[in-house]
Design a protein around this nucleic acid. Sequence first.
DNA 1: TCAATGTGTGAGTAATTGCTCAATAGAAAG
DNA 2: CTTTCTATTGAGCAATTACTCACACATTGA
Lengths: 317, 317
Amino acid sequence: MARKPENNNRLDDAARAGWLYYVAGRTQDEIASIMGISRQSAQRLVSLAMAERLIKVRLDHPIAACLEAAARLKDRYDLKYADVVPSDPGSDSATVGIAEAGAAEIERWLKSPDPVVLAIGTGRTLKAIIDQLPPMDCPQHRIVSLTGNIRLDGSAAYYNVIFSMADVINARHFPMPLPVLVSSPEEREVLHKQSLVKIALELGARADAVFVGVGELGADAPLCEDGFLAREEMADLMTAGAAGEICGWMFDHDGALLAGSINERVASIPLPPRDRAAVIGIAKGRRKYEALRAALKGGIINGLITDETTAEYLLKV
Amino acid sequence: MARKPENNNRLDDAARAGWLYYVAGRTQDEIASIMGISRQSAQRLVSLAMAERLIKVRLDHPIAACLEAAARLKDRYDLKYADVVPSDPGSDSATVGIAEAGAAEIERWLKSPDPVVLAIGTGRTLKAIIDQLPPMDCPQHRIVSLTGNIRLDGSAAYYNVIFSMADVINARHFPMPLPVLVSSPEEREVLHKQSLVKIALELGARADAVFVGVGELGADAPLCEDGFLAREEMADLMTAGAAGEICGWMFDHDGALLAGSINERVASIPLPPRDRAAVIGIAKGRRKYEALRAALKGGIINGLITDETTAEYLLKV
DNA sequence: TCAATGTGTGAGTAATTGCTCAATAGAAAG
DNA sequence: CTTTCTATTGAGCAATTACTCACACATTGA
């Protein structure tokens, strides 16, 4: 009995059904009897109205902008995960907001009943995240530190993130008993053959999710501040085109790892390939803009937690 | 019952859930796992987002029947603007549908980069319309209330439409610090000489667009319900031939303002002449039929937003 | 005329959503 | 510190919605 006067009519009906459904809040059964059609047809009209974008849904809430930005970031940089938190213009903290969001995301992984391997970097941001983690009991999971926590002089670095984390969530943990930087590629090779280190390396390679901060470069970069890198070396790196650093791995403005140079002395566990694991970078703020952009561009990270202002920048460039 | 600061968080969550549900099209199960809550909680958040009007749905499709009715109304009553929304026969809401349409039309005016002066009435319909307005930033426009918001006993009336509106669109606003009705023509004259009132009066006379509800008369008319008019006076007016009321101005079945009587005590700003400004009446439903017909016949309004059933009536008589 | 094709339909069924209710947790009151 | 009250939660179930399938009817092109 298909009447086929005009395609237009069908859209009109769809609009009408969509209106009754979304605006008037009727059920599809009611719509069917109002319009004198079967319930299934009513359902089809309603979903047609949606598919044809006859119905426009809008969310009026500050959070909407964040969600939208996250969706666009995901699309733009082909990310597995993106979370944008509202910016707090009045705060100059480098972590407020993203720390909570990062902790929430880590928690989500930890809630899995199946065992997962989490790898984490270090730095102020990660430390702030761990501080936000609630105590949990996760004997099924393993956490591994991607970077060494020993300075060249043998002392432990301040941000012993992995230990704090293990403490809080009660999971088996695998630190890297190494400096971030060693003195030569040869030394690195030797050290990486040590059995403890090898275990960590292998675990890192199998990590399901990786959480890392993104380090900017410059005279007051964290790597310098924490005494891992001399200021002259930093200057050299920057003239060589370095744009940022993740776990000590230096990359240029296109997000490509710098060949040679300092990267041959980085003792950190390599980041897992982005097609298998979630590699989530967490950072915000003007000082991180360029490093973040480069890391995203080069696909060094495939997940991002940042704030609205930073997201805007990353979408604009 | 505790008014918790977390209440805000709950709305944020609701917004987030609503966005994921309506905009991103996720199921409530997915939302639950994304947000780390139970499915039921996700469902509650989604429906909260709806209940709190965080989510606004609009239909952008000229439904043929409605369009046609609108066109015929325009022709028949010589209107500048007409919009007919689909009827929902089962609903006895006096505003569903026309509220969204009214908000859309107001939004259209507000989007103008050139400054415009909008005048608005008051009442349940207008209130419902304002609730549908999205937040905007319109410092270039001015909005003025056509009617007073003070009762005879000095208290403010419930539907403080102008303030809600100004709040949402961030425009300069000019309330009428007067009752709808004063005790005598002389008092009105005195009050209208007050500087604040004069400013509002002048602005109202220059309004580019006017949005008003259309009040029916009768024992349960809004004017009586809200305590502006005693029931005996109402009865007198009806025997004197009154058919309806806009902003307090009484008119007869031909749409002519009633001479003398109560109109000499109405303190509202006169409606701008219909040849210059758009005077858009918004109403639907059987109870409004006669008042609408009269207002249209007499040209008190030159724009109309109503529903299909009402449009049919207005075209038939 | 007659397949081929495309669109729409209802039935049936799976998936999703909404609601009720008992249990719980957390805050206010004592 | 305990009790009481209320808001919130999760489970179970009912209602609603989405999807798949086989079929009917038109249009199209040999």
